[in-house]
Design a protein around this nucleic acid. Structure first.
Length: 360
DNA sequence: AAATCGGGGCC
DNA sequence: GGCCCAGATTT
């Protein structure tokens, strides 16, 4: 293909969006932005990026804080392993590398949470290393352009795309090329492409075959698994009992009220058998309808029960019996769906979850 | 290679 | 409802 790079740059000059993380050469800011933007739309990640830079302006600030603070700031962004890895990565760079950021893609790969894409992005943006950034946008553009029908999940397919892109990349500014290609995939060669005004019409396999819909080949995706969560809000005054979620499931490291998971939605009487005896004498003062919350591989159905303890009862003993702790919900990292229903900052009370008309 | 990990915007 | 997003890690 002739002049692909220069024609892409021509397009980019007219369509480049100025973005806060794009107009800096600060490795710390670029790194934070790339982690936040993994599998996250720019519009969604931007407010969190601004908050992160404001709260932790330098690598030292991030390295010296606690994981809980990082998770709290990450609240609502999803894929929380990114937050935990970002924190580990900050400590690695600060303590092991003396606060000096890696300069090559290979060295960046040693930082927790930095995979093939992010290493390529950082090395090419910051140090002009000639290495392609293979993200969702680039896969879409490349498979259409070259007519690559093999599944993009396959490593052989990725190696092939990487080789083809290396041949198109200019030596003088690979980082600019990478950003231009991603921007082109994002704004023009989108899932529903704007082929009528595409500068690569005469080169694109998919356009010439009127076949853009079959690229990229993303394979077959699994069906969602339904899960049924029953949360029991044990409240006294402005505090609720919470427990930190463990490993090997969703929402690692985040906090939640007492949880009973079942194969289907249950009422209070059916639930009691699984409860600590200290709770059986209470009757929930509020039962909500079910809330639906969809994740990548799971559809959660959530019901909230509300136990309001009066002042004569000992919240700390109950917490101890249940291996939980009393917190103000507004001050701990919560899964967004729980925060949405537990926190009503304007009134200082805990909101009643809305019912949803689901059949379960 | 396949499974797992969030949440939101758009059609 | 389905699709996809400036992917990484674990199994």
């Amino acid at each position: 293909m002739r002049n692909f790079s220069s024609r892409l740059q021509t397009w980019y000059k007219d369509h480049r969006r100025p973005l806060p993380f794009r107009d800096t050469q600060d490795p710390y800011r670029t790194w934070i932005a790339e982690i936040i933007l993994q599998q996250t739309r720019i519009a969604q990640g931007l407010p969190h990026y601004e908050r992160f830079i404001k709260t932790f302006p330098k690598i030292q600030d991030l390295a010296l804080t606690s994981e809980k603070e990082v998770l709290y700031l990450w609240q609502g962004l999803g894929y929380y392993s990114r937050a935990r890895n970002l924190h580990k990565g900050a400590r690695y760079i600060f303590y092991e590398l003396g606060g000096k950021f890696p300069k090559t893609a290979q060295a960046w790969r040693r930082v927790c949470g930095v995979g093939p894409y992010t290493a390529a992005a950082l090395a090419s943006f910051l140090h002009r290393e000639k290495v392609p950034t293979l993200d969702g946008n680039v896969f879409r553009v490349a498979t259409r352009l070259f007519g690559i029908a093999e599944p993009i999940a396959r490593s052989s397919t990725r190696r092939r795309i990487e080789g083809l892109l290396l041949d198109l990349m200019p030596d003088d500014d690979p980082g600019e090329f990478n950003q231009a290609l991603m921007e082109f995939g994002s704004l023009h060669c989108s899932p529903r492409p704007k082929c009528v005004s595409c500068p690569f019409q005469t080169d694109c396999y998919a356009y010439l075959h009127q076949n853009t819909g079959s690229f990229p080949n993303k394979g077959i995706k699994k069906a969602l698994k339904d899960r049924f969560f029953h949360y029991i809000l044990i409240q006294q005054g402005d505090k609720i009992l919470f427990r930190k979620r463990g490993q090997k499931d969703i929402w690692q490291g985040l906090y939640e009220p007492l949880l009973v998971e079942r194969e289907k939605l249950c009422g209070w009487d059916e639930l009691k058998s699984d409860l600590n005896p200290c709770l059986r004498k209470n009757k929930p003062s509020l039962i909500s309808g079910s809330v639906r919350h969809v994740l990548t591989h799971q559809r959660l159905h959530i019901i909230f029960f509300h136990l309001s303890l009066d002042k004569t009862e000992d919240l700390n003993k109950m917490a101890s019996d249940l291996e939980m702790s009393a917190f103000l919900p507004a001050l701990i990292p919560l899964p967004i769906v729980l925060g949405r229903y537990l926190i009503r900052e304007e009134t200082g009370t805990y909101g009643r979850p809305k019912s949803s008309a689901t059949a379960g």
